[in-house]
Design a binder for these strands. Structure first.
Length: 917
RNA sequence: GCCGAAGUGGUGGAACGGUAGACACGCGCGCCUCAAAAGCGUGUGAGGAAACUCGUGCGGGUUCGAGUCCCGCCUUCGGCACCA
């Protein structure tokens, strides 16, 4: 390593430390010596630090990515120095639409683009000094990776968790692609904002619903942010209630509804079916031709309407009567059957009993269509339905009018349970005058809002689903020994007109022999959703090169679960739910010990950039304008102009795509803090910042500027703070270097010099403080503590010179504590202190000596009636009595008391005395 | 509408129920310099000459003591939204 021991001197004229040379030098050395290779085994504890892996796009990294990657890097480096075996890997989540769309646009195969993009990301990550073990790099588009997606799919299939079903799906017209529910935002496609309609296609689904309860229970034992847990609970949406059967005029067909309020059955005055309900067709035909046409028209309109139209805010209830009636099982009433789109086929049974007196939606529907309203609960028996202006979901007692065992019961969960028990056992009566149902017309049931995971995509750039359709044998899984089913090259990336994936057009891919009968068969042409790739990638990192299994059992059991998982809040219910599902499935299949993927999860904040936007665009979502589209754009002066005078006019260049020429048109400009992204034109690259201030200063800036979970308002100006700090560190440590004795600890002893003791105290307090702060992800206060410590050292050296072992201890400790945050300058200064051929990554975290860290004196705060009146310095040994006496002796207190005697004295020894008069 | 997070100087932000504003940006003054930049030192919540007083979105409460805990509002930002 001595071959490149470049002597780097501070460039005198600039007054800045030579960060560029230092960073290049150490990045080269780290790479050459493979310092970040994961170590396993020994008797060290393990720590798996994982940052969500990126989708490598063509625009590369910007400084906003530092908000994700730098904190993880600090934790990984810290744990390593603390003596853990650390797994800190990185990879590429590279399947999916953006690469494919780019391919369509530019006519290139994503297969050839992904490695270039990944290489560029990797280069930029190295510029930032991130300590990834690149020998464990994974790429989801590598057949050696997605082979195991296919293996996992076959496992789900064998476990009965994967099934094919023709179902209405979200279909984005623009992208000609199926979307998962969470990919539909406000009824529009999350990616292109295009309209989303319902379309019937045979789809592969996975029974996540079978794991609903396990996914709920698992939340209780993991240390994840409460907000994420709440979102997952809401998404799963467990709801306890009952199914109730209603007889219909159609022979042998019942309508089963789901209700959370079976206790209000006596108030059910009509039924409502979802337009897609299978019985709708049978019910049509019982009315006149015109009537049936109206029902048909309504159903067809509902099918065509986009999700946005159907769920639009404050929308008036719509619906249509089927001219059929069902029988209310508790009283034999014939109640009308309606169809309305506020009832959703995907939830419960797709049918409800409407109880307008106690449900607001049913109430609105009943009032609009003049349907009867019957109160089941009321405050008194004289209350009538006519007075109602809104439904009464709570309150009141069960009315006497219904001749049930429930008269007088409160409107409560207990009553609901009683009714369910009664329903399940209710038997027919002999009394011919009363209508009584057959026994068991209803039963308790739990339903979930969670729907099964739709993972078919009619797209090219994804993992082929390893299934074969045989005319004789039906659906046959590809034998495991034939995996991977390799994604072939393709000429055309667009889906076929019938909605099948581009793979359907490749005969050599589609044509296959059935593994069971050997006859001609066809391959499945759907590919998997990208969320499959990320649902188990953390397991692959534990043994990324294993060719015979998705993971090595021993390695996975050693590293799992992830100890610290860092990523954005936007994955709350998609990725973070699916990866938990996979982990539970693998656990149940006895393939892994851990049943949860990550014991601790934390969400970092965003990094926002002050961005010029079109002031006249949609106020909730103002359109950013790229700087190069604005005539005479000057960031600083435009921002100050906006801040002093608000919106102002400018000229925007409208490029003509065909001719390449441009004309301008007027636009009103304002500035908004928007999440940094290349597509908005508001991004700054880490390369620029590393060039101007160094990666270390950039790292420290994103750590220092705001708490980990908060957003940062990007400001290059403010980065000067951490940059100046690193310069001061460089100056003071290099100043100490000539006198520095690496064996300083032998010379450390109890000293008469108070300043020396104070410096050592600060050193040891800082060690403890930084360790605590990193463990809690409080990087901003950790950086602050480093600044305070550096300042203490500088003052000490200014006053007492650099010969003191206390100063050497402070300097060496400072460099070590700095290492997780600013690894380049730390390694450089460590070397300059004489520790040749060492990497701080491989050294030990300093140990705080509690005795040295203990304060000698305390500042006693003296309050009178809770107001600060005096501060007294006392020896740290002062006990409660000494504190109280000192406080009462205080001249300021005597003046304040003015002869009055204290009523009460509160003493917190060593801290505070409060005298109450 | 429901759920979640948060409101502290000119700015980003500190603060186990115990000195509000650590640390930093900006700004003022001083040193260095022919001058500037950089750097170093120093000051910087508001009012006041000072002693002091007032100050953590608003209104109550608990407490010897509240930015912190409780109740009710207001505002901002996320997420969900006819889920029977």
């Amino acid at each position: 390593m001595s071959d490149d021991s470049v002597i780097i001197e501070k460039t005198e004229e600039s007054g800045r430390y030579p960060f560029q040379a230092i960073e290049r030098k150490w990045q080269t050395r780290w790479e050459a010596s493979q310092v970040y290779r994961t170590e396993e085994g020994g008797d060290k504890p393990k720590s798996y630090v994982l940052t969500m892996f990126p989708y490598p796009s063509g625009s590369g990294l910007h400084v906003g990515h530092c908000k994700n990657y730098v904190p993880g890097d600090v934790v990984a480096r810290f744990r390593k120095m603390q003596g853990f075996n650390v797994l800190h890997p990185m990879g590429w989540d590279a399947f999916g639409l953006p690469a494919e769309q780019d391919a369509i646009k530019r006519g290139v195969n994503p297969r050839s683009v992904v490695p270039q993009l990944a290489a560029e990301y990797k280069r930029q990550m190295s510029v930032l000094g991130l300590s990834y073990d690149w020998t464990r790099e994974i790429n989801t588009t590598d057949p050696a990776y997605y082979k195991w997606n296919q293996w996992a799919f076959l496992l789900l299939y064998k476990m009965g968790l994967a099934y094919r079903k023709s179902a209405p799906v979200n279909w984005c017209i623009n992208e000609s692609s199926v979307l998962a529910n969470e990919e539909v935002v406000d009824g529009k496609c999350w990616r292109c904002d295009g309209p989303v309609i319902k379309k019937d296609l045979p789809q592969w689904n996975v029974k996540t619903t079978a794991y609903a309860d396990k996914l709920l229970e698992g939340l209780d034992k993991i240390n994840w942010p409460e907000g994420i847990k709440t979102q997952q609970r809401d998404w799963i949406g467990r709801s306890e209630g009952a199914e109730v059967d209603f007889e219909t005029p159609i022979e042998g067909e019942k309508i089963t509804v789901f209700t959370t309020r079976p206790d209000t059955l006596w108030g059910a005055t009509f039924l409502v079916l979802a337009p897609e309900h299978p019985l709708v067709d049978d019910l049509i035909g019982l009315g006149t031709w015109e009537q049936n046409e109206a029902v048909r028209a309504y159903r067809d309109a509902a099918a065509k309407a986009s999700e946005m139209d159907r769920t639009a805010e404050g929308r008036e209830k719509t619906g249509v009567f089927t001219y059929s009636y069902a029988t209310n099982p508790v009283n034999g009433d014939q109640i009308p059957i309606w169809i309305a789109d506020y009832v959703l086929m995907g939830y419960g049974t797709g049918a409800i009993m409407a109880v307008p007196a106690h449900d607001q939606r049913d109430f609105e529907f009943a009032r609009k269509f003049c349907l009867p309203i019957v109160l089941v609960y009321s405050d008194d028996e004289t209350q009538t339905e006519d007075d109602l202006t809104a439904a009464l979901p709570t309150g009141g007692t069960f009315r006497a009018a219904f001749d049930t065992p429930f008269t007088g019961e409160p409107n409560s969960k207990e009553t609901v349970k009683k009714v369910i028990r009664w329903m399940e056992t209710y038997v027919q009566s002999d009394d011919p005058d009363n209508y009584y149902p057959l026994s068991g017309f209803g039963r308790g049931r739990i339903v979930y809002r969670l729907r099964d995971w739709l993972l078919s995509r009619q797209r090219y750039w994804g993992t082929p689903i390893p299934m074969i359709h045989c005319p004789k044998c039906g659906i046959v899984p590809v034998p495991e020994s034939d995996l991977p089913v390799v994604l072939p090259d393709v000429e055309n990336y667009k889906p076929t007109a019938d909605g099948r994936s581009p793979l359907a057009a490749i005969e050599s891919f589609v044509k296959v022999k059935c593994p069971e009968c050997g006859d001609d068969a066809e391959r499945e042409t759907d590919t998997m959703a990208g969320t499959v790739d990320s649902a188990w990638y953390f397991l692959r990192y534990t043994s990324p090169h294993n060719a015979s299994a998705a993971w090595d059992r021993a390695a996975a059991d050693y590293w799992m679960p992830v100890d610290m998982y860092l990523g954005g809040r936007e994955h709350a219910v998609s990725h973070l739910l699916y990866c938990r599902f996979f982990q539970h499935v693998f656990h149940d299949a006895e393939l892994i010990d851990a049943d949860e993927p990550a014991s601790t999860l934390r969400n970092q904040g965003m990094l926002n950039s002050l961005t010029p936007v079109d002031a006249d665009s949609d106020p909730r979502d103002k359109k950013p304008i790229k700087p190069d589209e604005l005539v005479g754009f000057d960031r600083d002066s435009w921002i100050s102009r906006f801040q002093s005078g608000g919106v102002f006019p400018a000229e925007r260049i409208m490029r003509d795509v065909e001719t390449g020429g441009g004309k301008t048109e007027p636009v009103n400009i304002e500035f908004q803090w928007l999440k940094m992204s290349k597509s908005k034109g508001n991004a700054t690259t880490p390369d620029e910042m590393a060039e101007a201030y160094g990666a270390d200063a950039l790292r420290m800036y994103v750590l220092f500027e705001a708490p980990f979970e908060d957003s940062i308002q990007w400001s290059e100006e403010r980065m000067t703070g951490t940059f100046r700090f690193l310069n001061r560190v460089f100056d003071i440590v290099t100043q100490i270097c000539p006198a520095y004795d690496p064996a300083y600890s032998k010379r450390l002893q109890v000293t008469d010099l108070a300043e020396e003791r104070a410096l050592r105290r600060k050193t040891h307090q800082t060690i403890a403080k930084i360790a605590e702060d990193i463990a809690e992800l409080r990087f901003n206060t950790a950086v602050s503590a480093l600044m305070i410590h550096t300042d203490a050292l500088r003052r000490f050296v200014a006053a007492h010179g650099s010969n003191s072992p206390a100063a050497h201890e402070a300097a060496a400790t400072l460099v070590k504590l700095l290492a997780p945050f600013a690894p380049h300058i730390a390694d450089e200064l460590w070397e300059r202190l004489g520790h040749k051929d060492e990497f701080l990554f491989r050294t030990d975290w300093p140990i705080a000596d509690g005795a040295v860290a203990a304060e000698e004196e305390i500042t006693l705060v003296v309050q009178v009636n809770g107001k600060l009146r005096d501060r007294i310095t006392l020896p740290a040994t002062a006990d409660a009595t000494a504190c109280e006496e000192a406080a009462l002796r205080s001249a300021k207190v005597m003046e304040e008391l003015n002869g009055r005697s204290p009523k009460k004295v509160i003493v917190i020894p060593g801290k505070l005395v409060n005298i109450v008069v």
